[in-house]
Amino acid sequence: MQGAHAAARCGARTRSGRPCASPAMANGRCRMHGGTSTGPRTAEGLARIRTARTTHGGRSAEMRSLRRHLRELLARSAELVGEPEKGST
């Protein structure tokens, strides 16, 4: 049973000053010391990210307007039924 025990070690210096003993990935460092992505740097890469970015639209102007309209409708319907508005005592 060799697996992770036989893998090369990361070797990055830890806070204690000792070398990290975690198994290394292909880049020679472990998952904690391998470094994170710095994101796109070229104009082409930035443009690609902008076009690929998807949002749920929950905070768009259209959704805010829809929620505002819905609150108004609920308040009017509560007035018609004679129920006190939510939040008032």
Rank of each mutant, 00 (worst) to 15 (best):
G34C: 06
P40W: 01
G57F: 00
T55N: 13
R68W: 05
G17F: 14
E79L: 09
H5T: 09
R53V: 00
R41G: 07
S65R: 10
A47E: 00
R71M: 04
S60D: 00
G3S: 04
T38V: 06
E79W: 09
G11D: 04
E79S: 03
G3E: 05
R29Y: 13
E62R: 10
V81K: 03
G58R: 12
R68Y: 09
I49S: 07
G45V: 04
H56L: 12
A12L: 10
P40A: 10
L73N: 04
R41T: 05
A12H: 12
T51R: 06
G34E: 08
S22W: 15
R68N: 09
A26V: 09
L46E: 03
G39K: 06
E83S: 09
L73Q: 11
R31C: 09
H56G: 14
S37T: 07
R59T: 11
M25R: 15
C20L: 03
R31M: 11
S77Q: 14
A47R: 00
T38F: 02
L66R: 13
G3K: 10
R59H: 12
G3W: 03
G39P: 00
P40Y: 02
G58H: 12
R50K: 12
R41I: 02
G58I: 05
T54K: 15
M63S: 05
E72C: 05
A47G: 06
